[in-house]
């Protein structure tokens, strides 16, 4: 947190929140109390908390950031599984998912052991989940139950964990500054959500997918997305990209964020609910705030890697202490 550019980013967001708080107060005074104003006030208050926790995690450095996303993944997966009906036969599988698979994934990410981070969930966890459920003996809707759990782990844990992994991207001339890259990704994706909501309420006419998410409109997406790209471009000085690179990456975040939100809305509808939970007043659940980041995180992570031609596989091989743990029973 002793990076003046990072402090400037945090300061900028705090200034934006002050502005939002003042506008909310003025609106409340002019229009009087009502459900829309109450919801707006709740949302702005929740933003203060979210920004505070996010900033503190960055200030705590690598451990703080990984701890923060570990908790977020846990809460998101909890909301996901709570809404997906799991029968008795899945109880033990769920214990493994919550208490073994999730923490180990973050351990591999934090270590970092890049190869294992990439395959731990798509290979080992995905093999394990149906096996454990099959051993429990319940065959009713088996494929559906396994697929649902795998999807939950993939999105809430695997995809989300690409955000803290941004700290490890080796970029020449940007060493020790990766926290700003993480800030950029989260800020642009979330601002894009807010802008699309604001422009959608203001100018929105044609819904994009009325059956999935009636709030998403063509106008909201185009104008809100453009505003978010403009803000992202304006922040190019904090990123390893040039101005045009920052614009392109912001556009990627906006598009992936939009699609992530759309898909998670469809999942929500198929589970028969409007909100993922009630954890964040005014917003719904933790997943309602994270949905756009889920798809944006891995796409942004890998595209940034390609952009700078980094090779994480060679930079972050298996750590020595993990190799020793895995070898202890084979050495005589």
């Amino acid at each position: 947190m002793n990076d003046p550019e990072l402090l400037a980013l945090v300061g900028g967001v705090l200034a934006l929140l002050c502005l939002a708080t003042v506008i909310t107060r003025l609106l409340a005074r002019r229009k009087g109390p009502g459900p829309v104003i109450d919801n707006l006030r709740q949302r702005v208050n929740a933003w203060w908390w979210m920004v505070a926790v996010f900033s503190v995690s960055l200030a705590l450095g690598r451990n703080g950031v990984f701890g923060f996303y570990l908790i977020l993944s846990f809460l998101a997966l909890r909301e996901f599984v709570t809404l997906s009906p799991t029968p008795r036969g899945d109880h033990r599988t769920l214990m493994w998912v919550f208490f073994i698979i999730l923490p180990l994934h973050y351990l591999f990410a934090w270590a970092p052991w890049y190869g294992m981070f990439l395959i731990w969930i798509p290979v080992y966890a995905f093999v394990f989940i149906p096996v454990r459920s099959a051993l429990a003996g319940d065959t009713e809707r088996f494929l559906e139950r396994s697929a649902r759990l795998q999807w939950g782990v993939l999105t809430c844990v695997y995809f989300l964990s690409h955000l803290p992994m941004l700290l490890y991207l080796p970029i020449d001339g940007y060493e020790g500054q990766n926290a700003k890259l993480l800030f950029f990704a989260v800020l642009v994706t979330q601002i894009s959500d807010v802008m699309q909501y604001v422009f959608g309420k203001w100018l929105g006419r044609r819904p994009i997918a009325p059956t999935v998410s009636p709030g998403k409109t063509v106008e909201g997406f185009l104008y809100g997305g453009a505003a978010a790209v403009a803000i992202g471009t304006g922040l190019w000085w904090a990123t390893p990209f040039g101005p045009s690179g920052a614009a392109a990456m912001a556009a990627v975040l906006v598009l992936a964020g939009f699609l992530g939100g759309l898909v998670m809305s469809a999942v929500k509808r198929s589970l028969g609910t409007k909100d993922w939970g009630r954890g964040i007043p005014g917003h719904g659940g933790v997943l309602d705030r994270l949905d756009s980041l889920l798809f944006a995180a891995p796409v942004f992570f890998h595209l940034t890697g390609y952009y700078f031609g980094t090779n994480m596989h060679l930079t972050y091989t298996q750590p020595e202490w993990m190799r020793q743990i895995l070898h202890f029973w084979t050495t005589p």
Binding site: V81, T86, H91, L94, M95, F98
Partner: peptide
């Protein structure tokens, strides 16, 4: 609601659902 999923009869460990 959901308590039977958090700690069903016959299980010793709860899972952290809501």
């Amino acid at each position: 609601e959901n308590l039977n999923r958090i700690l069903p009869k016959g299980e010793a460990m709860p899972v952290p659902l809501m």
